[in-house]
Structure formats: C-alpha cells, structure tokens
Write a protein that binds this DNA or RNA. Structure first.
Lengths: 247, 247
DNA sequence: ATAACCATACTACCATACCAGTTAAGCGAG
DNA sequence: CTCGCTTAACTGGTATGGTAGTATGGTTAT
C-alpha cells in the first residue's frame, strides 16, 4: 500500500481501492481500527475523501462504521461470505448459460487467451498475477453477454470472497484445478450447451465452500463466530457430498 | 418530497432516500440538474451530506456526476434496465428455488399475509401501497432463505427498474396479474417444487420486458437512445414469443 | 455579420473548522 | 483499595471555505 495517490485524479476512489486491497490481502486485520485522520495523513490528503472511501468500504461489508466511536475492519463472517457467494453464483451461472446463446466467437477467443495467461502465471507461481487474470476472466465473460454494466455489482459482492481467497493462497492452492474449471466453462459455452456451462460455473464458484470451514477453524481470530446459512450447507453437501470440508 | 429530514439521525442516507424516491417517481425528470447547493438549502442542510447522497445515486445509476459541471438525472436506459433485470432475475430465481429447500413454514405464512395486504391495496386502488407490499414480498422471500444481507444489493439493482415500474403505473396496471404471480410463487415453494418456483419467479420478473419497449416509444424524451442487449431480447422472445411487446 | 476572446458565474472536489457523542483515564470520596 | 464522577482526548458527522475547471454571455477584433 505504498502507492501514492495521484492528486490530479479523483482521490476518494483511489483511497477506496488502496484500502480495499489492504483489507483483502489481510494487511489490515479484522478488528483493526481505521482512523480517517491517520489514513489521510499517510496519503497526504484530508479526511473528506478518506471518509467517502470508508462509506464505500462499509457498503461492501469490509468495515463497520460506528459513529463517534471509530471505523473497524470487520471479521470475516461465514454468513456474509456464503451470502455473497450465493449472489455471485446466481448471477454468474446466469451469465454462463446466457453466454451460450449470445456470446460472439471473439469473446471465446479472449477467454482462451486469458486462460493461457493464467497458466503462465501459475507456472511462474505468481499468485497475485494469477488472481488478476482470474478476475479478468470472469469480467470478460460478463462483458461477453453485454452485462458490462452489471460487473461493478459483481465486483462489490466479490469483496467478501476475495479476502477468503487470499487467505487460502499460502496453502497448496489448486491453481491448475481452477484453470481446468475455467477451460471447461469455455468449452461448454463453445458447444452452446447451456446446462453444462451453468453446471461448470456453479461447481467453480462452490470451491470456496469446501475450504471456508477449514479456514475458519484454522484462523478463528480472523472470523466472526457465526455459521453458514442453510442455503450454503445445502449447496456444499449437494456438490461435495454430505461430509464436505473435513479438517 | 416535502418530508423534512430528522437532524438527530444521519442526514446523508435520508437525503439519498428522498432523492431516490423523487427520481424514481419522476418528480425529478431525466436531464434535470441537481445542485448540491439547492438541495441542501431546500432541506436545511449543508452541501456535504447532499454530496454523499449524490455519490450513492450515481452508483445506483440514477444520476451522472460530471466534475466541475454538474450532477444530472440520467435518462432511462433500456440497456441498464435490462441488465439490472438480468441480475435481479438471476438472484431472485435462485432465492425462489433455494426457498423450496430451506424456507420455514412461518415464512410462507408471512408471504401469504403480504399477498392478502396487496390484494387490499389493489382493491382500494392505492398504487403506492401496492408497490410497498410488492417490495416487502420480495424482501421477505430473500430473508426466508437467510439472504437478508444480500437484499441491499438487490435493492440497489432495483432502482433502475423502479422508475420504469412507476412510469407504467398510470396505465392499466395489471395488479391482479402480479398478485396471481406472487401467489403462484408461494404455492410452488409450499410444494417444494424448485423448478416450478424458479419458473414462476422468472416469469414474474420478465413482465417488465413486455412493457419496456412500449414505454420507451411512448416517452422518448425520458429514455436514452439505446437498445436492449441481446440477453434481454432472448429472454423476451423466450417468454412472450417472438413478437413480444407490440405497440 | 461572424468569430474569437475574456470576464463572470457557476460547478464538483478537496481542505479545514466546528460540533456532538463516546471512551477512557485520572482524580477524589468512601 | 475500590467505586464513581469528572474531564480531556479522541471519534465520525456536518458545516463552511478555498481551488481548479467548465459553461455562458457579452465584448471586441476581423
């Protein structure tokens, strides 16, 4: 987060980006207090744009603003992560199935390129780059069905999941598995097989359900003391069997 | 919009609510300029909370902020409405199908009550109340699958559709049709028939595709000069036949 | 008459000042 | 020593001031 802000551009969105990145990468840990004053001083800006960034972070569910008390990074809530995942699955499965009907061939080519780039990133073990291409893949797919204006919406929802994703990076991340899943999605769309494309996307986006309980047990200090809602348990057992995610 | 703000509570969210309502009900027309100064003076508050409300409105896609120029109510974009509808259909169909697996019986009772209230509103021809209960129905359903924390997202997406909905109110609004569709959704969930519940919700949320092109032709001054994306044309023809929404 | 220019009156954005409410430490009474 | 009150040092929310950039209308030069 050493990046400086560009005073020529709008400052508030830059602060938001930087803080979001810092929270998602666990540079700022749950429970940590974020001071408007301190953040503003660090970047050489006033409290006002920092405050606007805080508001956006709170809408994304990454911080909690307590008036006259402080702004704090929230603990990871399995409930919130599961709900965000639910929404994302709903939207992206719809994107995948719709892509079978309307996606132009050029879009499939671009998706193929992104998978190739992702393989390179995996080969050189560059996890940050890997995640960047992962995000680009999903965004490109959304654009392919002319849902570009819906992407910011997905991006907001993704914030909850990204922190978990980053937390799972140091572990043996099955990057090749995710790449295979991306490839399967593209193949299904190329075949114009809506059912298969939707199923592939659904399976892909349910991976996190497998690792989430294990991560929560491994890092209890980072997690809220709550449980996954019924729909998440339902989805997990339907996808990975009744005894999903053992320790 | 004569409601005064409560100075004891946070002002910015109140301003947002009031302005959003004014835009959705077409009290503020597309193209109209919103002045921080003027809005602030009208409600007896300073420019700062008004500015924060503007930012949220711009994120909801209801206004466009042009730095150093002004903030303007955007014209209704068929593309944006269709994309918002796409996202909402995806999420709420998933909610409906999931409800079949996890919704408790009490939730179904509450949904039934809301339908009864909606019938009363329709009988007394109170369209504002009708829309209130309509929103309550969908929110309650989301809560029934423990997706309460996902509702704010749906609410943001809904803003685009609400303006169209309000525009269609003066016309012969088939309130009874919408009530029947709600009832069918509840019946399907009560039967734990996920396929049927999803289909019912899908049909319900696609009604707007039928009226949108007609409204755009009837009120060209309110609409952006754009077209529905491919996924919306696909959905309309799949649901209402190839010649959907004639003049 | 027309086109270029400049002064003016806006705008949004950022910085600063002020306010009310919360917290916590320190002091004094029991 | 312990408990309770006071008070000072925070917080976020709001109000206000300053700055740079944009539209506009009148003026001047062509």
């Amino acid at each position: 987060m050493r990046n400086e802000v560009d005073p020529a551009a709008a400052i508030a969105p830059q602060i938001y980006r930087l803080l979001r990145q810092a929270i998602v990468t666990l540079e700022y840990l749950p429970g940590q207090r974020l001071s408007e004053q301190e953040i503003g001083a660090r970047f050489g800006v006033s409290r006002q744009p920092v405050r606007e960034a805080f508001i956006k972070l709170s809408e994304a569910g990454l911080v909690r603003i307590l008036p006259q008390r402080g702004t704090f990074v929230v603990r990871i809530s399995m409930r919130d992560v599961a709900n965000a995942r639910f929404v994302r699955e709903a939207v992206e499965v719809a994107v995948a199935t719709t892509a079978c009907a309307v996606a132009p061939p050029e879009a499939l080519d671009r998706l193929g390129e992104l998978i190739a780039l992702q393989k390179e990133a995996a080969a050189s073990d560059d996890q940050r780059l890997f995640l960047r291409y992962d995000e680009a893949f999903h965004r490109t797919l959304a654009e392919a069905v002319e849902c570009a204006s819906a992407w910011p919406f997905i991006e907001d929802v993704k914030a909850q999941m990204d922190r978990v994703r980053y937390l799972s990076l140091p572990a043996a991340s099955p990057m090749s598995l995710l790449i295979d899943q991306h490839a399967e999605i593209v193949r299904a769309i190329a075949c114009r097989d809506a059912q298969r494309a939707g199923d592939a996307m659904r399976l892909h986006l349910r991976e996190i359900l497998n690792s989430l309980p294990r991560l929560a047990r491994a890092h209890p200090e980072l997690f809220e003391d709550d449980e996954m809602p019924a729909h998440a348990r339902e989805a997990a057992s339907a996808t990975f069997g009744r005894d999903a995610a053992p320790a």
